[in-house]
């Protein structure tokens, strides 16, 4: 059994609980053991880096210190924000000796470089693999399902940290959808921002961003949206149908891990598809899934 470190982050224990359960379900299915980093802490997310660079590097960095201490050479961070902050902290701590020394002093522990941090898309490609996904599809998989792959910001940006060439039209999630038998649609809002936490502080501003994304996905006749970020999911799913976001038809929003599980024939209940605010039931029964 393959073993990989797991950094769930705060959201996967609460509003994104179905991201956690669906990831665990597919890992069990593919024989992968997730080892949660013991005593992990919040990555600091945007509030930390907007306020204090060292704090941002230190909060995320403590988790990298713990992972190395616990013998984890690679880890998966499903939340896009956690993934981004862990990568940024690794970059900062490996380029800024003063910060690394300060972190080591405060934690009374040494920082080990080189822990491999994987996003959920990297995990699906490199740890499970597209061939394995194709092999394990039950029946026609996601056949007939038109999926708008929505990446959001933090899988592709910033280039300085992630070193990606393709910034505007990523393909990793589309490739997973297609491997599962579904049809990834071509659409222009893959990497537009969902409004982030402005949904809480300035809902009017976030609403415009959310509406533009939902409109674009509906405009290409998608049946659903696939996401890989708790905040993107919250904004597109929870806010959909509220004032100013009443769409021409309801557009279910899945985590990509849920779609993997559904295509592999795992029970819908184990994948948390009933925990969304936009009902997924009629779409899934029409597609003979779950």
């Amino acid at each position: 059994m393959k073993r990989i470190g797991y950094y769930p982050g705060c959201s996967l224990h609460a509003t994104a609980v179905e991201f956690d359960t669906s990831l665990k379900a597919i890992c069990q299915h593919f024989g992968i053991e997730l080892v949660e980093i013991a005593d992990w802490n919040c990555c600091g997310s945007s509030p930390a880096h907007n306020n204090d660079g060292f704090l941002a590097a230190a909060l995320a960095g403590r988790n990298l210190v713990l992972a190395a201490e616990q013998g984890l050479e690679e880890l998966v961070a499903p939340c896009a924000s956690c993934f981004s902050r862990l990568k940024a902290a690794q970059h900062d701590l490996e380029h800024n000796e003063a910060w690394r020394a300060e972190l080591e002093k405060r934690l009374q522990a040494s920082y080990q470089s080189g822990v491999r941090i994987r996003s959920i898309l990297d995990f699906l490609h490199a740890v499970i693999g597209l061939d394995a996904l194709r092999d394990r599809i039950v029946g026609p998989g996601l056949a007939g399902l038109k999926v708008a792959s929505y990446y959001g910001c933090l899988f592709v940006r910033p280039q300085e940290i992630l070193g990606r060439q393709e910034q505007e039209n990523p393909q990793e999630m589309d490739m997973v959808v297609n491997a599962l038998g579904g049809q990834a649609v071509d659409w222009p809002f893959k990497t537009e921002c969902c409004g982030n936490s402005l949904a809480l502080a300035r809902p009017d501003v976030a609403q415009r961003a959310i509406k533009a994304i939902l409109d674009a996905a509906l405009g290409v006749e998608s049946d659903c949206i696939a996401t890989a970020c708790p905040l993107c999911h919250a904004n597109l799913d929870m806010r959909q149908g509220r004032q100013g976001l009443k769409m021409s038809r309801a557009l279910p929003v899945f985590y990509i891990t849920q779609l993997v599980g559904l295509a592999c024939g795992l029970p819908a209940k184990e994948l948390g598809v009933d925990q969304h605010l936009v009902s997924t039931r009629s779409l899934l029964s029409a597609a003979n899934l779950g």
Binding site: S46, R157, E192, C193, N196
Partner: peptide, 8 residues
């Protein structure tokens, strides 16, 4: 929102 599209 620190989305970074301006930088790209």
């Amino acid at each position: 929102a620190a989305c970074g599209i301006c930088t790209v």
